[in-house]
Write a protein that binds this DNA or RNA. Structure first.
Lengths: 418, 418
DNA sequence: GATTCTTCTTCCAACCCTTCGAATAAGATC
DNA sequence: GATCTTATTCGAAGGGTTGGAAGAAGAATC
């Protein structure tokens, strides 16, 4: 049984308050925060005091006042430290350095050799990218509060062992051990599905909503599930493998070895496959780079080629049915779709997919769910990875201890000068 | 945002302690409870004191002691009151009266007319069954702590409106209003999926496990999802409609109007349909009563008829793939299967289905999940419905107030005599 | 039969968290 | 400069859990 203590409440409230500050259009007053979180005034003052003391928030001027004391504006202190987010994908490693306000300060992308990449190669590439990030941005390592790394496949978080990779023949690779040494930074490992979801919870649709499903559609596809404002990880941190649920029994062969998986139809490769099916002769559909193929498809569709429209139409149907499965099973308030497939085909694909969801889902859960395109700026995976590091920092007991410590400190030290 | 207060912690701990008492092989000592829940000794003493005062627990003798003060045994006080659980199914209403130890004291089953039943008919039948229950068991209405009612389809709990029924053409039926008046009992409404799941959480596999999926397989099929020891309801209390997720695109027509739903293959009707498909001439497969048809199928399989074996084999494959979808998506620790389909075909169906899950699920979530046949005694739906009433009673602020009230009461009243 | 042991329970004080309400602070306005 | 008006801080109270001391209850022993 999971122990629940009053400190968990405080931790969640701390997260909640800070999430609202990030979510807000700019700086927010304590009043706004109390209204937004539903917490009492005193509690908000309490939590913000703690965050101010830790340097995470700063006072940023005052609001206009029509008589009476003006409200202080609180904003995230971007300069408090840096966060690193890394997205390990099939063909490249994308690393970004964020400030604490989660603005991108520097970005590096390094290719991975094609074929079966060894763990050591990935570690080298990653470590190199991080060094470049630090050097180019002139950031001292000590200012980095943590690094989040998204690894495709399934990762055991604590041990940091990658037990399955969809692209490479990895087997029980002790990633944490390999990276810890090289990076010398607080490290947070997980997969792209959960990274995107956390990004969405802090900076996207999840700001307003507590039950959502986040679909990541690129070379691999999958879902992140957040329930009651909490990410659902599953018993072995491998929940959300929607890409490998069966949509068409005895259907198309999937990379996982099974048939009829969702991923075989709506991933970049799956869409390319549909194009090949519908236009057997077309050599634009035959290239080895699926992202390029889908980009070509988008151009063909823009040129009103009927076959391209048919491919998009079919894909929308697959996607709609698969999303409807999620809607029926999870009954979320919002379904967010994002990443390469959406970036390339969004305008054409999504309206048709939305319509297909309506045909396949039951009326009540369908009415309850809104479908949205991801509004998280930039790459949601690197941002989500950095968010893991942010969450880790906010959980740091050295920085955010129990309140009694604060009281003692306040008594011991003098009053802070204005 | 959901407010979290320290009272929620206490509420959850109260549930947890009581669940362990129900789960235990008999009476349990406070020591056992502390060990089982992970709570401190003082807290367990605190909570049990409260439950003893409310009459929910009683001291039931002492354990043997090899020197030292013997441990007091605590047991549920069956006589504290009665609970009623009602299962409204397609063709009948099944009502049962339980004591507080959740033993069945009396059981009534009344048929519903075939065809499109009106809400008033169901309400009449239900009210009649409850009256019979009370009369036959000699239970005074005032001793009934609450009644839980399982309604097929989708029910909005607070308003008690049934917005969709799979069998009847109901539309926004205000069930709570209709029943409140007739029953005059605290009333708890939900659907059979969630009822079975709650039964499993208190009295079945959920006793040991916090993340589980409970599959109800009868005329309709669906899943109940419990995460972190909490039932997942979804945004509109309609999560778990696994029966209407698409397993075979463009597949068999389902009662919901879609094609290829899981329910079209693994419900009683679906299995009968598979039999008709494989043995077009066989009139045993052609009857209108699906439960009877599946019972006949079981007999045919027992008689080693090859076609019957083939039907079971196919069904196992459908079921296995559909369960694998759940395993991949939710990554639970346990999947429980139960109800009529399992009762009739369990021995033959489940081993093959388990094997099919292994073929379809990803390795890591598959290894993490164990599949079990439901071990909840008797009808899990009536028991689950009664459990809703039990949970409601345990949430009653009149009975279980904040601790400070207890202190005051203890001060006001004298010490209890030994 | 009294004493000693051993173990269970209860009780108390300490600690964590939120929240109400009074007191204090800080500008705007007259 | 006095008076409003609104924000913020502060202290006490209320709801929880928990470790440890003190009390209670049998078993074993002398």
């Amino acid at each position: 049984m999971i122990k629940r203590t009053s400190q968990d409440i405080r931790r969640l409230n701390r997260f909640e308050v800070l999430r609202r500050v990030y979510a807000g259009p700019g700086a927010m007053s304590r009043q706004d925060l109390a209204a937004a979180t539903g917490l009492s005034f005193a509690t908000v003052a309490n939590l913000t005091a703690e965050l101010l003391e830790a340097g995470v928030l700063v006072e940023a001027g005052h609001e206009e006042s029509g008589g009476g004391r003006p409200r202080a504006r609180l904003a995230v202190n971007a300069e408090r430290g840096a966060l690193i987010g890394v997205d390990i994908a099939e063909t490249s490693v994308h690393a970004e350095l964020f400030d604490l306000a989660l603005s991108v300060r520097h970005s590096v992308e390094r290719p991975l050799p094609p074929g079966d990449v060894r763990p050591a190669d990935v570690v080298d590439t990653l470590a190199g990218a991080v060094e470049e990030l630090l050097a180019a941005s002139g950031t001292d390592r000590s200012r980095v509060l943590g690094a989040g790394v998204s690894v495709p496949g399934m990762v055991e978080r604590e041990g940091g062992v990658s037990s399955f990779s969809p692209y490479w023949s990895w087997h029980e690779v002790p990633l944490r051990a390999l990276l810890d040494e090289r990076l010398g930074l607080p490290l947070w490992l997980d997969n792209p599905l959960r990274a995107s979801t956390v990004a969405e919870m802090w900076f996207g649709a999840g700001r307003e909503v507590d039950d959502l499903v986040v679909l990541t559609l690129r070379a691999g596809v999958g879902a992140g599930i957040a329930i009651g404002g909490q990410l659902h990880r599953g018993f072995t941190n491998s929940a959300g493998e929607w890409g490998h649920t069966c949509l068409a029994l005895d259907g198309r062969l999937c990379t996982c070895g099974n048939r009829g998986c969702v991923e075989a139809y709506v991933s970049l490769r799956g869409i390319a496959g549909t194009w090949r099916e519908l236009a057997p002769g077309d050599e634009r559909a035959a290239g080895p780079d699926d992202a390029a193929t889908v980009a070509a498809l988008a151009r063909a569709a823009d040129a009103d080629e009927p076959v391209a429209a048919a491919v998009v139409e079919r894909t929308a149907r697959y996607l709609g049915a698969a999303v409807a499965n999620l809607v029926n099973l999870v009954n979320p308030q919002v379904v967010v779709v994002g990443n390469q497939v959406v970036d390339l085909l969004g305008e054409r694909l999504l309206p048709a997919a939305y319509e297909a969801v309506g045909r396949h889902a039951l009326a009540l859960p369908h009415r309850a769910a809104t479908l949205r395109r991801s509004a998280v700026p930039h790459n949601p995976v690197t941002r989500g990875a950095a968010t893991f590091a942010l969450e880790g920092f906010l959980d740091d007991r050295e920085v955010f201890g129990p309140v009694s410590r604060m009281r003692k400190a306040a008594k011991g030290g003098g009053a802070a000068g204005g």
